[in-house]
Design a protein around this nucleic acid. Structure first.
Lengths: 356, 356
DNA sequence: GCATCCACTGTAAACGTTTACAACACTCGA
DNA sequence: TCGAGTGTTGTAAACGTTTACAGTGGATGC
């Protein structure tokens, strides 16, 4: 299945390559030429070579979304929002994952080589090396995730501080007094910001006891493992704040293994408000960080940056909102309790109550 | 941040572009030249333009994985396996989603234009148009998902028929007699094959009552909606076979809304054995279709096809295996039952029992 | 009948690389 | 001293497009 070039199409149609090109691109050409060329192209199954076209035109019509942790549904949610925006502007979106296999620096370097006209980056860790590469990368970049200030890089971020305040305030209001934060790795950007946010939030409540541990990862399995340690401590907390929904779900599973009722014995909260939070039982109270809105904002920032390379860098922060579900309700005055209390919770696939 | 070309590097180093190219690519060149060129490249921040390089070399070192439904975790699982294989061979993997926005035909056409050296396709629907495009596409393709036979296209498939037999046999063995299949759209490839597989499987058990309905989609929300209809029927089944885990989870949630105990009042099974199946309560019995193995096989097939365009097309079918969890256990002889029976189920984040 | 315009066409140069080929400066052996 | 060999270099042609430019032919105006 050899590649057929425009030269062959031109020959087959009996015209010059220039005419063929013009006919195919809808530029000025006589109706007969257009007909001949289109027929020839059809017959030979011609498709313009993308690399040649990009080289000549200086643009690829491709944008990239590079994400560290594609296993986390929240990134899929952001990607969907990104795709909606960029494909409306005629770009195709390619997703490239920068896992353990390829470092984010490598991915950025590679993407800077001209395969894409711009990129959105969601790195888990923002190293100095990455910042250096980003600063001198020739293609437009938007970072979706917290970035040091004054970096002159377009940036869309969640508000981790407010998010942590929302959950902590909520738990305290519901009567919790001993709160443990199960973070993901704190050398990651979300890990660091949520750690600090938690510290700030609990500082506002001098009476409550606050502790922190770190899960190995922002995953269900890591949350489960970390929670087992927390719960086997002799003085276990009456609330666990998880750094994201996946960890939160792991915590719920661990609590179940320990025979603990949620929220009777212990409250649990997550962050991201993914679909999963509404699907586990009890429903996981979570902070919605506006994934959809962040994705959209990042895409729009990128499109604007492409149109005007000189515009000043923008930073957009999206406001979080608390979504309360069964996992964090007040511990009730012990209603002649059955050992495992029954949670009568309506499945919130369609609606949810918000408080923010 | 203007693009710096090899011409500038060569000028800056005081050599010809040919020498610069050779020095940068580790071809034959004197140590002094290499040093000068590398220094110049470093200083100017030179990165080779990918489109020019690809045009000249005739290869991009990129492979694509195009997937219809990125919201389904099973595709992420396959992608991870694919990436592991292809990046070990020096390729970069780009993911392109063909959602409602862009038809699979468009995506294939676009990818055939030279942006990638090969692609793996997981289409939801295999239309004649898609087959026609695939047949004449100039870049190597592997289809990950059932394909009509004798298509001379490399193909990796799950064994839906066996999968359906495994769940149906299991449910019958556990004493179920009235089984409803909640399929996804049956005009999709998985929908059609699972429908047929279910029909064949129940045909082997003449005594049991079998019915089918279709959810709008392979999602939790669609499964939930479909299950509400099924369960509000006056003669509700004693088992529901869901066409995948997401639908199965929706079914569990719906059953809960109806106050039904699982597996006491009704058994539920899924397909794909995603992580979610082990995380919901009760654990969702599911058929593992070998996502990891299918992804790996597809990637290897693609690499071989790239190396040898003439080799005959292969079809690889991966054997399924049943993973039994709490959602489908036998209805026990009514142990002085509490209305909502308590499932003491060990969280299977680490191990699971298989039967296949 | 000649100049002018118009609509269209072909020639050729670019885009940034890689690479075949020829040229070059050496060293070595005769 | 010469020729052959070696190791390195530059010139120039390609890869498949797009596009500036200079034609071409015919119709129109005088």
């Amino acid at each position: 299945m050899a590649r057929v070039t425009i030269t062959q199409v031109a020959a087959h149609a009996g015209v010059s390559v220039a005419s063929a090109s013009r006919a195919l691109n809808g530029l000025i050409a006589s109706p007969q030429t257009v007909a001949k060329v289109q027929h020839a192209a059809e017959e030979l199954g011609y498709v313009a070579d993308a690399t040649a076209q990009s080289l000549k035109r200086g643009r690829t019509n491709q944008l990239a979304y590079a994400v560290a942790d594609i296993g986390n549904p929240v990134y899929v949610e952001m990607m969907t929002a990104v795709e909606r925006v960029v494909s409306a502007s005629g770009y195709r979106l390619v997703l490239s994952s920068m896992g353990t296999l390829s470092s984010s620096v490598d991915v950025v370097r590679d993407l800077s080589r001209g395969y894409v006209d711009g990129m959105i980056l969601s790195p888990l860790r923002v190293t100095d090396e990455l910042l250096a590469v980003l600063a001198k990368t020739p293609v437009p970049v938007v970072v979706l995730g917290h970035l040091p200030d004054n970096r002159s890089i377009d940036n869309v971020r969640a508000d981790s501080r407010t998010a942590m305040r929302l959950v902590v305030d909520h738990l305290v209001a519901e009567g919790r007094r001993d709160v443990t934060f199960v973070n993901g790795p704190s050398d990651t950007t979300p890990g660091a910001f949520r750690r600090d946010g938690f510290a700030a939030a609990v500082a506002a409540h001098p009476k409550i006891l606050a502790r922190s541990v770190e899960a190995e990862d922002f995953t269900i399995a890591a949350g489960y493992a970390a929670a087992r340690l927390v719960l086997s401590d002799e003085s276990r907390p009456d609330a666990i704040v998880a750094a994201n929904d996946l960890i939160g779900i792991g915590v719920i599973r661990a609590a179940e293994d320990f025979g603990l009722s949620i929220p009777g014995d212990i409250a649990v909260t997550g962050i991201d408000n993914t679909e999963l939070a509404g699907v586990v039982r009890p429903g996981l109270t979570s902070v919605d960080l506006g994934a959809e809105e962040r994705g959209r904002a990042a895409a729009e920032l990128l499109l604007q940056r492409i149109m005007d390379a000189e515009r000043p860098a923008h930073t957009i922060a999206v406001a979080p909102s608390l979504v309360v579900r069964g996992s964090s309700l007040a511990r009730r005055p012990d209603p002649a309790s059955s050992p495992m209390r029954e949670h009568t919770e309506h499945t919130d696939l369609n609606e949810e109550r918000e408080a923010g």
